[in-house]
Structure formats: structure tokens, C-alpha cells
């Protein structure tokens, strides 16, 4: 028992430190260097973006992404590849963003939709059906 306890102690100390470290906000964790994004905002006279707000935005977006069937690790990676400005914008827009999918999206559309798009394709307003002959001459 004693040896186990002795072995566990440093591990738990390590874990406690890691948890505290992970939960500390970025500003404190990375010494006192000022990040390029914060610096740029300040130079351009933009109001300093509330750091906490961007953390919430990241959490919010992650919730939406995982709800849409993306693995939580992958969702985190996608969010971490965005700047604070982009994440905050995304959090505001995420419900109405278009997602390009190309072929196959209008399968099941009603005949009327088919006829409308066929007409607009021929007129050059849309480009849905590959079989509509496209002439690019003026």
C-alpha cells in the first residue's frame, strides 16, 4: 500500500498542476508577451476584443459543431485554427452559414423546382444542370 501511495503522490501533484495550468486564461499562461492579433487590433485603434468573449465564442461554436456530427477533438482543432475575430463572427453567424456540397443537394426537389432551375439555367442565371448547354459567347 505504502509504495502505491508513494507512487501516486507525485502523479497527483502533477495532475493538479496540469489542471490548474490548463484552466488558466491564455493571458496569464503565456508570460507577458503581447500576441500579434491583440497588438494589431490595438494599433488599428479597434477596441480590444474581450478575451473572455472569444473564449465563450469558441465554446459556443464547438457545441454547434459537435451537435452537427463532428468529433469533439476535430471540432476543437477547427476552432483553434481561427483567429479571435473569425471565431466571434462565426459564433454570430453559424446558424445561417451556407455549406457548399455541390452535386446531389437538390435530389428530391419537386418538379416545379426542376422546371424553374431548368429555365434559369437556360437563361444563364443559374448553373445547376450539366446537361443544359452553356454557351459563353456574348
Amino acid at each position: 500500500m505504502k509504495t502505491i501511495r508513494r507512487a501516486i503522490k507525485p502523479i497527483s501533484v502533477f495532475l493538479i498542476i496540469s489542471f490548474v495550468w490548463i484552466s488558466m486564461p491564455y493571458e496569464y499562461a503565456s508570460a507577458a508577451i503581447i500576441g500579434t492579433e491583440i497588438a494589431k487590433d490595438s494599433i488599428e485603434g479597434k477596441q480590444a476584443r474581450n478575451y473572455i468573449f472569444s473564449v465563450f465564442a469558441r465554446e459556443e461554436v464547438q457545441k454547434v459543431l459537435t451537435a452537427q456530427g463532428i468529433d469533439s477533438q476535430e471540432a476543437k482543432k477547427r476552432i483553434n485554427s481561427l483567429t479571435d475575430a473569425e471565431v466571434i463572427r462565426l459564433a454570430k453567424e453559424i446558424k445561417q452559414l451556407p455549406a457548399g456540397s455541390g452535386l446531389g443537394t437538390i435530389v428530391g426537389a419537386a418538379l416545379i423546382v426542376f422546371l424553374v432551375l431548368l429555365f434559369t439555367d437556360i437563361m444563364g442565371y443559374t448553373d445547376v444542370f450539366p446537361f443544359v448547354k452553356k454557351h459563353h459567347k456574348k
Partner: peptide
Amino acid sequence: TPSLKGSL
């Protein structure tokens, strides 16, 4: 994004 059948 599976549920959207597309990419944001």
C-alpha cells in the same frame, strides 16, 4: 460537416 452535407 456531416449534418450539413457540406463544408463551411
